[in-house]
Nucleic acid binder design. Structure first.
Length: 798
RNA sequence: GCCCAGGUGGCGUAAUUGGUAAACGCGAUAGACUGAGGCUCUAUGCCCUUUUUGGGCGUGCGGGUUCGAGUCCCGCCCUGGGCACCA
């Protein structure tokens, strides 16, 4: 009988589900493991082989943990609100709700075909009102604590999607979804104060097991920067411009202050004679997109306001300029120009004929700016100090006089939490003409998203919900007067902020989850997902979890003990898989042709887990051939009684290899080790006994569950292989009794001899110099030194 | 510019963490099987030398440490990813 995955896989998938073999048990006495994958967004495109890479790897880990006696929670659900579905709906005319249902059904079918050991009894869906009731509840709590607020802000606006975008959704000044150039638009937005958690989000990384890469990515994104805020008093005025700098040591070299065109003091600073020129500049910079500014102007532009301010350290009069390269949102929107010690300032000074005054010794200032640290010169009482010390002392000096202070700035901005779109969780707020902003009372949650036919964006910047009069108009919960609902919805990150808590108690109607259950299951022991979510989803969900900790819902400071990320699966041509390139591999096709086990094994074997790898059809075939060999070998060995020592040893070695490599996600070498074992066993077929086949199948089952289960049954077992125990290897059997001792002369391999593994140095030496080959090498030479490494080699130095 | 990875056969990659470089898979070539093709099996695997014997080179480049370096140190080059008028 030939290996025929199409015949066996479906059968076992149904068997596993019917017998509830993968359901996690609350409060089980067994030790728990919470294994999490990023729940998929059910798009119209269907499951990607990249999803499969992450899922089946964590599936193998979950399966092994179960065999080892752990109570494993390995859940799945759907992150279904958001733009992709809405755009799909607009394109096809299928309502987002219907499209979501359809897409989920498709994903579910695809995922079930892979034989993953998810606990389907805990399936969740972020678009289910029973679920988003709690997403809204979290928002109310954030509002209550002052962490959700409204703000009129120039936001990134995509003219094509007609939607406001968070900074994180704008890439290269283009809309992340459609690629259209973004512009700015002022809208009243809901914001979340993630910046309040910036420090904790950095500090608490110390206590979790994330790779350095992931930690660095997050720390970079938060962009903490220590510096000094310096007050520059405006000449003949009480107004102060606060300037942020990391280089307070260069303050004696300041030759101008540049403020952003939208700095609050701009209007006051422009003098009558500069009015025309300055206002024209501001107008023009507003028109320019960020993209243009970056690409077209290497040398920064600016315009003089006509006003001056005073340098607090020496009362020098310094001109105030307006420059569109200064970002209003960062560091107070004002910078000090130190031409001698900053490249941009140097160019700026050359262009506008400002003085270049050197205050740090070093470099050649007539040629270019000198930006390194050094010793202060031309800096009054601070002359002679090193930069680092000077930064410290100047800050202290300023602080004493009330003219400046040490401060910390972050690149991380508060999180724009409003979307003017239909397909999202309604923000549970009511606007009352009398009482103002009123939160929807908890008892009235969820605020259900009404089913409407016109869900297209209005293009005015308002949500389509604005037109649903009988939904918008409500009584104010406070005064009972007529009021209106907030019509903005939440971004698609809202539901995924906390979903891992809902898996713990998915049907709870009173809380997000029962607190005892949360205590039992949290933290997530191991969370795997794509690198692309490192700065968005991962950071957001850590923030929300910290908030939940602060209000007593979450028991720990961090949600995820360990976070790993898989590399992207690229197309065979090395490019990203994309419909437009026509190079997409559909997992369905692979399952149909070769079976799920082949797909799973191939994706583990293709290369290092965290690395991007190109797909290879040839590689898939190679794995399929391997499975055919396993099948044939196992069936042919059923009648063998005893296992030879060579096979026994190899099996224990394999066992050891899996144990050590799986924790490190070295799936590729595990599969290679399996192949090696099978190759050995095929050559020594008669030595492969029944007991070893059995053990081999258990070891194989986390990786290729279907074929293992089928062969297990063919061996006469009545119970599922998933109920077996993970074998323990005997360390004494993983070591060889004889080895090939390598003989080196001057570090070069000259010979190798089979020898007893525990051969002594003396014996090894004697053996070595008795060899004809070695004798030739040693002729007429004097042995200076002999280095002997037990079990490995002997090196003769002549 | 800054921060991460990484650079090993024709290709994807492996190397017990300083000890036989190329395991495993793919491809290629030759042979076996076949009427033929495919599948499968066996062998080969970079350069030099007369085939074997044997020897040399060899892990991006240049140095260094060491009995011994893909692995450690110093200096470069290149590729991929992330951030970026961030002051």
């Amino acid at each position: 009988m030939n290996y025929n995955p199409q015949e066996i896989e479906k059968k076992w998938q149904e068997y596993w589900e019917e017998n509830k073999l993968y359901q996690a048990e609350d409060f089980s006495k067994k030790p728990k493991k919470y294994i999490l994958i990023e729940f998929p967004y059910p798009s119209g495109a269907g499951l990607h082989v990249g999803h499969v890479r992450g899922y089946n790897s964590m599936d193998a880990i979950s399966r092994k943990y179960r065999l080892e006696g752990f109570n494993v929670l390995f859940p799945i659900g759907w992150d279904a609100f958001g733009l992709p579905t809405e755009n799909y709906a607009i394109k096809t005319g299928i309502h987002p709700k219907v499209a979501t249902e359809k897409n989920i059904a498709n994903y579910k079918r695809q995922i079930k075909n892979l034989g993953l050991s998810f606990d389907w009894s805990r399936e969740i869906n972020t678009t289910d009102p029973k679920y988003y009731k709690w997403t809204q509840w979290i928002f109310l709590k954030l509002f209550e604590k002052g962490l959700a607020y409204q703000s009129l802000l120039p936001i990134n606006w995509c003219p094509s999607c007609k939607i406001g975008l968070a900074n994180e959704e704008v890439i290269d000044n283009k809309c992340e979804r459609c690629g259209t150039q973004t512009t700015k638009k002022e809208i009243k937005q809901w914001m979340l104060k993630i910046t309040e958690y910036a420090d904790r989000l950095i500090e608490d990384l110390a206590g979790v097991d994330y790779s350095d890469k992931i930690k660095a990515l997050q720390i970079n994104w938060i962009g903490k920067s220590l510096g000094t805020e310096i007050d520059f008093k405006i000449n003949d005025s009480d107004e102060i411009i606060k300037v942020f700098t990391t280089r307070a040591d260069t303050i004696f070299g300041v030759k101008a202050i540049v403020i952003a065109p939208d700095h609050p003091l701009v209007k006051k600073l422009i003098t009558e004679e500069n009015k025309e020129k300055a206002e024209k500049y501001i107008e023009e910079s507003k028109k320019k997109s960020d993209f243009e500014r970056e690409k077209l102007e290497k040398v920064k532009t600016g315009v003089f306001t006509g006003s001056h301010c005073l340098n607090p350290v020496n009362n020098e009069k310094v001109p105030v300029w307006i420059g569109d390269y200064v970002i209003a949102a960062y560091g107070g929107g004002a910078v000090m120009v130190v031409p001698a010690h900053d490249y941009r300032d140097y160019e700026f000074a050359k262009k506008y004929e400002l003085e270049i005054k050197q205050v740090i010794s070093g470099g050649s200032i007539d040629k270019d700016a000198f930006t390194d640290y050094g010793t202060l010169i031309n800096s009054g009482e601070f002359n002679g100090l090193g930069s680092e010390k000077a930064i410290e002392e100047i800050a202290q000096w300023l602080e004493k006089k009330g003219l400046g202070r040490k401060t910390i700035k972050y690149k991380l901005r508060d999180w724009i939490f409003s979307r003017q779109h239909y397909w999202g969780e309604p923000i549970p707020i009511i606007h009352c003409p009398k009482c103002g902003v009123v939160p929807v009372p908890e008892k009235d949650l969820p605020v259900e998203l009404p089913y409407i036919e016109k869900y297209q964006p209005t293009g005015t910047g308002e949500s389509p919900l604005k037109n649903v009069k009988d939904w918008v108009n409500v009584k104010c919960p406070k005064c009972g007067g007529m009021a209106q609902r907030e019509t903005d919805t939440m971004p698609n990150w809202a539901g995924s902020n906390w979903y891992f808590i809902r898996y713990i108690d998915p049907k709870n109607n009173k809380e997000l989850a029962d607190s005892k259950k949360i205590k039992y299951w949290m933290q997530v022991d191991w969370y795997n997902g794509g690198y692309e979510h490192t700065t968005l989803h991962l950071l957001y969900s850590r923030f929300i979890y910290k908030f939940l900790f602060d209000i007593g819902v979450a028991p720990q400071l961090e949600p995820y003990q360990k976070r790993t990320s898989h590399g992207i699966v690229l197309a065979e041509d090395g490019r990203k898989m994309s419909k437009s390139f026509g190079n997409v591999i559909n997992p369905d096709d692979i399952v149909k042709e070769y079976g799920a086990d082949t797909l799973r094994l191939y994706e583990m074997f293709m290369g290092p887990f965290d690395q991007s790898i190109s797909w290879s059809d040839k590689g898939v075939k190679g794995v399929y051939r391997f499975l055919e060999r396993v099948w044939k070998l196992a069936l042919e060995s059923l009648e063998n009684e005893k296992t030879g020592s060579r096979i026994t040893k190899a099996l224990h070695k394999l066992n050891e290899k899996i144990d050590s490599d799986l924790e490190e996600m070295k799936f590729n070498t595990i599969i290679a080790a399996f192949m090696e074992f099978i190759n050995l066993a095929i050559v020594n077929k008669k030595e492969l006994g029944r007991d070893s086949v059995q053990k081999m199948l258990i070891l194989f089952s986390p990786f290729a569950p279907h074929i293992s289960e089928e062969l297990w049954k063919k061996m006469g077992h009545k119970k599922s292989i998933t109920l077996e125990k993970w074998p323990k290897y005997d360390p004494s059997l993983t070591k060889d009794e004889t080895i090939f001792l390598v003989i080196q002369i001057n570090g070069k391999v000259r010979d190798r001899i089979e020898a007893d593994a525990d051969i002594s140095e003396q014996e090894a030496k004697e053996l070595a110099i008795s060899r004809e080959k070695i004798k030739t090498w040693l002729r007429d030479k004097e042995i200076k030194k002999v280095i002997f490494i037990p079990r490995k080699l002997i090196n003769i130095v002549v």
